[in-house]
Design a protein around this nucleic acid. Structure first.
Lengths: 145, 145
DNA sequence: GGGAACCCTGTAGCCGGTATAGAGTCAAGC
DNA sequence: GCTTGACTCTATACCGGCTACAGGGTTCCC
């Protein structure tokens, strides 16, 4: 099958398939005499695997690692566990940060109803006030991933 | 004050200050005879404002818009409200997606205890199985922001 | 043989910075 | 006066995970 069909069957863009090949996530397939990529069912299976991992937001580098591990089926799988653990921790942390953020934004939004002029806008006031109250390094380190 | 002091007092990297200037978020300051940027207190205030908005994960383009609005204090502030609403909706949606993801990952993690060999790894099995079961377009459109 | 749909490579753009290279400037100490 | 080290300058490239575009070649159907 050619790249268009592969992409359609995995639900991705053609460009993405070529990108995964460049990035070493999908083995380079054979070529037709005219230079078109020719894929087999194994390529589709692997591409779907990659996409499923991506739908779990696992970074490409980790997926590359998992694929390498899966290919050597006799090794202990502690690394897979560790990898999922690390990723899960990342997700939990990010979710908690978003929850805090959501609360702050909701509070902010409640400061200003419609129809005011800018000069009386509670949101702007609140933003400016909060910014002034901020210490030097409170968002500098540690808060960003 | 020079760029280093400004950056330290706002808790950002020196590079970031120059980046904000290039992006039009921070007014280009005067220069000393030797070409060093010379900032006043207004610059610090504005930089802190930008950083506070960023700590709320508001995109730079939106911050630029808010700054322009704040400078014209006689206009109605409906646009500020709308902007915060849109951002809040974005955050809510992303948080919900992360919650779903967290549940999926936790379920996945429970498939494999430590010490197995790869061939018996429940996580890999589960990942492969799930990938096979996937229809063509289930993650292609709509699911990503 | 003409046009649509497909494929190829290479390159640039998105976001919000971060990192590097290579050069100039300034203040303090010897 | 000279060196050292901290600071500053510009320009450019890099990160992830794609996406888009330019400028060509191929295949297939009417």
């Amino acid at each position: 099958m050619r790249i268009g069909e592969l992409a359609r069957r995995a639900g991705v863009d053609v460009q993405t398939v070529r990108y995964y090949e460049r990035e070493g996530l999908l083995e380079a397939p054979g070529r037709t005499p005219s230079g078109y990529r020719a894929y087999g069912p194994a390529h589709l299976e692997r591409l779907r695997f990659v996409r499923h991992c991506r739908s779990l937001d696992i970074p490409l580098a980790d997926i590359r690692r998992v694929l390498a591990l899966a290919d050597s089926r006799s090794v202990a799988c502690d690394e897979v566990n560790r990898l999922v653990d690390v990723h899960l921790a990342r997700v939990r942390e990010r979710r908690a940060a978003l929850e805090r953020l959501e609360r702050q934004l909701a509070a902010l939004r409640s400061q200003c109803a419609s129809g005011h002029r800018i000069a009386d806008c509670g949101i702007l006031e609140e933003l400016i006030h909060a910014a002034q109250g901020e210490a030097c390094a409170c968002h500098a380190e540690g808060e960003r991933r």
